[in-house]
Write a protein that binds this DNA or RNA. Structure first.
Lengths: 121, 121
DNA sequence: AGCATCCGTTTCACTTGCGAAACGGATAAT
DNA sequence: ATTATCCGTTTCGCAAGTGAAACGGATGCT
């Protein structure tokens, strides 16, 4: 279960995770691309381009390009909707699941290290 | 105090926060810029360009440009080191403190909403 | 059938970020 | 007093993201 995370602690957790991500220079994803990825994996589908664009309040081309990038990294896949062939359904991949799983572990690791070594300002 | 945050919960918290940030399109900061900002505010100083570059494993010009952006948003300020005038010390600003404070609140808000409404996948 | 509407993508011109290398100014070493 | 070294910044050429608008293809309407 979650906790009543205080703002300062939350920020510190944020820092540890983001800094670690920058260091690894792992798939160097944009904030938008990451948001899109998380939407697809942690939110009930089906996910269409327009739906994602509306929810994130960005233009459709932005979603298209983000999908290009994520698809090329095999983190996500496109599938034409059989019901309405104008629509595109965004689907998950094994590689994407693994990636996010590891990312989640990275966050919890950051949280764990924060417990033993309290922040310094 | 912190919690043993489980990976899935951590990811969901991450999603809520990032998505909210994208929606607001608030100061639209790069991941690197955000990492830099958090470093300056949550880590004991003094902070120099080379130090930050080394810690984040990025090139010095990248730090310089990030400081340009953050400075222009008044989230951070430069000051020549009086001891060694080759160095530049990165300092905090009132506006930056407020910004991060609000960001922390946004994270905790996301965590709170997660408690009442468990994720759906 | 014909026309209007809704999709996602592509084009366009623009902005922004990137690393490597070169640069000027400040300090250290001889 | 030179010379060498270290600092942050500025070029340079390049890669990638942005929204608006136009586009082709699929569906809905009459």
């Amino acid at each position: 279960m979650s906790v009543q995370l205080e703002p300062v602690e939350a920020l510190d957790l944020w820092r540890r995770t983001i800094v670690e991500g920058v260091r690894r220079e792992s798939p160097d994803l944009t904030t938008r691309q990451m948001a899109l990825l998380l939407m697809v994996y942690l939110t009930p589908g089906p996910h269409t381009v327009r739906g994602l664009a509306a929810h994130l309040k960005v233009s459709k081309p932005a979603i298209t390009r983000a999908l290009d990038k994520l698809g090329q990294l095999d983190l996500v896949r496109r599938k034409v909707d059989p019901q309405d062939r104008r629509s595109v359904l965004v689907q998950r991949t094994v590689h994407g699941s693994v990636f996010l799983r590891e990312y989640g572990d990275m966050i919890t690791a950051a949280a764990a290290s924060a417990e033993v070594a309290p922040r310094a300002a």
